[in-house]
Design a protein around this nucleic acid. Sequence first.
RNA 1: GGAGGAGUGGCAGAGUGGUUGAAUGCGGCGGUCUCGAAAACCGUUUACCCGGUAACCCGGGUACGAGGGUUCGAAUCCCUCCUCCUCCGCCA
Length: 430
Amino acid sequence: MLDIKFVRENPDVIDTAMANRQTSWDREKFFALDDERRAVITEVEELQATRNVESKKIGALMREGKRDEAEAAKEAVREVNEKIDGLADRRSELEAQLTDFMAHLPNLPYEATPVGKDETENPERRRWGTPRDFAAEGFEAKPHWDLGTDLGILDFERGAKLSGGRFTVLAGAGATLDRALESFFLNTHLAAGFKEFIPPVVVNREIMYGTGQLPKFEDDAYHVGDDQFLIPTAEVVLTNLHAGEVLDAADLPLRYTAGTPCFREEAGSAGRDTRGIIRQHQFTKVEMVKFATPETSDDELESMVAEAEHILQLLELPYRVISLCTGDLGFSARQTYDIEVWLPSYNSYKEISSCSNCGDFQARRANIKYRDPENFKGTRFVHTLNGSGLPTGRTMAAIMENYQNADGSITVPEVLRPYMGGLERIEPQA
RNA sequence: GGAGGAGUGGCAGAGUGGUUGAAUGCGGCGGUCUCGAAAACCGUUUACCCGGUAACCCGGGUACGAGGGUUCGAAUCCCUCCUCCUCCGCCA
């Protein structure tokens, strides 16, 4: 949620920001709603002030035993109340409309976010590692879906039988590898000072609203039970852990992490990444979330990307880092780095992590503030950040493809071997 | 799932339907005292919204789990929901 006062005072800034995001906003509608709303509020509150004064007089008259005067005063207040009732309905209607209007406005791109129209204009920041030259090694690299099927560690057919398309059964060493990755990611983050959580993965509607999944992207989430949702990412739960709270500046930044199953309907993604485990309805992801002051959030974003990169470096997987341009930026983010890992089957880099600084956008929605009596009176909104660190599925796909051998086996990266009982190679499963 | 109890300010804890935004205590902040500190004493202490002001602030409104209702007036009465606690049942 944007600051309504800022929008009111800087509509031109909003014009530019929305244009850069390749979208638009209804400026006239905003001012029509906001102007009328404020006029109605002023009117209602003046009437309420009158009512409060007159009602107190009634109390005094009653005590003095002046029944007739009290009755006359009651009648007068009744008339005031009738006026208030009429205006109050209009007021709540306007406030509901304005809140809904504001809830659909995306965050303003930060100054560090490059202007661009779509994903083709995301500037590359850096590269790490060199992709293997399979031709020089004398064999053709197989895609992970073929490797996984041949080795018996990815079972797409049975996944479809159980649950439909885009659900996959991990079997044997595949299941172990997934679990190993999750533990490896979490342990690495713990060593970097993150605190670990196991949160619920079913959440209430207002929680999805707090991080910006709702109201705009309701179709992308699984709706279950009595108006609850399966989380599409642990960002939702970790960020909302502190919803409605006032944090202490001395405790910031807070660095949280959690490995959870994530659920996405992937509405609108039909036909994209249909093969393999790149795009699934259910997958495991270790997420990083931070709460920081506005002064430190830029640095925290950089160190979050570095943390995700560190994982890939330990796994020795080639990757590159790009900045998302304004036209490709997510709804709640003001600045985002994507990390893309080298996937031989795509013959290119494929997104594996997305690290975003949301500024105070989510904090305003979820009402997360902080107090810093040394530096200012009252409270301010914190900045929230989130980043994948990392999804197990796409990482597994990258490992399978980048670590494959000519005979179809897969070498287990050294850092993972302690997590897999010392296993060095994944061979065909029984 | 059944029965009972409770939800008030940072925390604890009062509150006959009418100067209660809310006693009191603790905590926090400022001060007196002190070389300094503790103790004691004095003062102070919420959030959001609307309006005014360059600003310190000032005026008004709203908020006692949430939402409705009764009333001239609700923390206080009524209804619905949520959460927590206790006991019983069931269960990984």
